[in-house]
């Protein structure tokens, strides 16, 4: 053992690591942990397998070739993304801070020269990158295998779908983080995340339909309510980007196309940005006011 240095001088505040440095260090650690974990592998595998199954079933219905074939394939993949990506992102976000708090790791981390905002941003960035990796691997594998099997694919559709899936993942991850800082236990956080996922995927659709009939909602209000659900925004934006028409969504889709036309991209982007920024900012705010113990 060597001798300890003799020291009593304070360290200058300028020696403290910058926000960017700390966010980068925490993000790298989070990314490595996520990639090493079983959930990452399982979700990616499930996404690839289900994506291929959906693609081939959709393509088989149209003889397996042609852009109309891929239109159906894309629609199938959109539905798959709607189910799998929110579940992945919500549960990953919900588990992150709550499980660290439960194991005492959050308090230990915050006892270092690190701010709470840096911890939230670092963890968010790390998990977002791991989700990007998983989605790229899943969608990329699907695209390559479909092309190899002779199903003609439109590269722009795949790029749109991948980009929008990642935006959806970011929004759901933010929501997961908010759940995570509010919950006392990791199990409660993950349970709440699954409940939120069920609500967004199934309940909100049914509620919207029931509300439209029972309350005789006007078409513009129906469209506005749809924009309040990030999954609906993703669905409308994907269809709009790939097909350039929301007719398949019925009267609300027709109304949106006619009323907003080329502004639809901006409207959907605005909704998604709100879903990404607001829950994440709320999560950072809640953590800055709550005990990390």
């Amino acid at each position: 053992m060597s001798a300890f240095a003799v020291l009593s001088r304070p360290l200058a505040a300028s020696n403290a690591p910058s926000l960017l440095s700390n966010v980068g260090v925490i993000a790298r650690r989070e990314l490595r942990d996520a990639i090493r974990s079983r959930w990452f592998l399982l979700y990616t595998l499930a996404f690839v397998v289900l994506g291929l199954a959906v693609s081939f079933v959709s393509a088989a219905g149209t003889g397996g070739t042609g852009l109309s074939g891929f239109g159906r394939t894309t629609a199938g993949l959109i539905n798959l993304v709607l189910l799998v990506v929110p579940l992945m992102a919500l549960t990953a976000g919900a588990a992150s801070i709550a499980s660290d708090r439960e194991r005492g790791m959050l308090a230990y981390l915050l006892a270092q020269p690190v701010t709470r905002a840096e911890v939230v941003l670092g963890k968010y960035l790390g998990l977002a990158l791991s989700l990007f990796a998983s989605l790229s691997l899943g969608l990329g594998t699907c695209a390559v295998i479909l092309a190899w099997k002779g199903v003609r694919t439109s590269p722009s559709s795949i790029v749109w779908l991948a980009g929008l899936s990642m935006l959806l993942a970011l929004g759901m991850l933010s929501l997961g983080f908010l759940i995570s800082v509010l919950a006392r236990k990791a199990s409660v956080a993950v349970g709440t995340a699954i409940f939120v996922w069920l609500s967004l995927v199934f309940v909100s659709d049914l509620a919207l339909m029931a509300g439209a009939v029972a309350l005789r909602l006007r078409i513009e209000r129906l469209f506005a309510l749809s924009c309040a659900n990030p999954l609906q925004v993703f669905k409308m934006w994907s269809l709009h980007a790939v097909d350039a028409s929301l007719d398949v969504l019925g009267p609300a889709g027709l109304y949106a196309t006619e009323e907003y036309g080329r502004w639809l991209h901006a409207i959907f982007a605005g909704c998604m940005i709100v879903w990404i920024v607001v829950p994440l900012a709320a999560a950072a705010l809640v953590l800055s006011r709550r005990s990390p113990l």
């Binding site: 304070p10 360290l11 505040a13 403290a16 270092q112 020269p113 690190v114 701010t115």
Partner: peptide, 9 residues
Amino acid sequence: KAARLQVGY
């Protein structure tokens, strides 16, 4: 952050 830079815990 500056205060915790002075501390080993």
